[in-house]
């Protein structure tokens, strides 16, 4: 068994997840981590599958089975070590929509060696009232410097932000 990374994206409609996962199941694959969501009018799938098949064979089968859905499918080897990643901080950034918010904020994170584990952005509303909102989960070792640098870059970008530590919840 090895792992393959599969991405599939296409115009949203019912049946996309079913079609893709059906192929994986029928061919003996085991679906590992996945993220599937609507982006604008598109549906995007990113997943890891544990399988005996090579990427060309599985890729061909997926392309064949999803042709009717018009998906763009790509597949590649995903060998790598699996280690649990626990985000330490949650950063929300929001403001009037303008270019450069994601690049500006994430560059700052990269410079400080903060590792993004999850990032989601959304435009709220439209036209002159459009608000850009971004929520990032990240792993950061050092908080004070991070907080100071984020204040600076968010001021520069004219956006509001909140940085909080993520508290582990156990029930």
């Amino acid at each position: 068994m090895h792992e393959l990374a599969v991405t599939a994206i296409g115009a949203d409609r019912p049946g996309i997840v079913a079609a893709v996962t059906r192929v994986l199941q029928d061919r003996g694959g085991n679906l590992e981590d996945s993220a599937m969501t609507i982006l604008g009018g598109h549906f995007a799938i990113v997943l890891l599958v544990a399988t005996e098949e090579d990427e060309d064979t599985l890729g061909a089968a997926l392309a064949e089975a999803t042709r009717e859905l018009g998906l763009t499918v790509s597949i590649s080897r995903a060998d790598g070590q699996r280690k649990p990643v626990d985000a330490t901080h949650l950063l929300s950034v929001y403001g009037t929509d303008r270019p450069g918010i994601v690049a500006g904020v994430t560059e700052t994170l990269a410079e400080l060696g903060a590792n993004i584990t999850d990032l989601e952005t959304q435009v709220i509303g439209s036209g002159d009232n459009a608000v850009y909102a971004m929520v990032i989960e990240l792993v950061a070792a050092e908080e004070e410097q991070l907080a100071a640098r984020l204040r600076a870059v968010c001021d520069e970008l004219g956006v509001d932000h909140t940085l909080r530590t993520i508290e582990a919840e156990t029930y």
Partner: peptide, 15 residues
Amino acid sequence: AKADVFARKRYADKG
């Protein structure tokens, strides 16, 4: 903390 952590877990369980 991002809600979709749960969504993802559900998919993983399904696997």
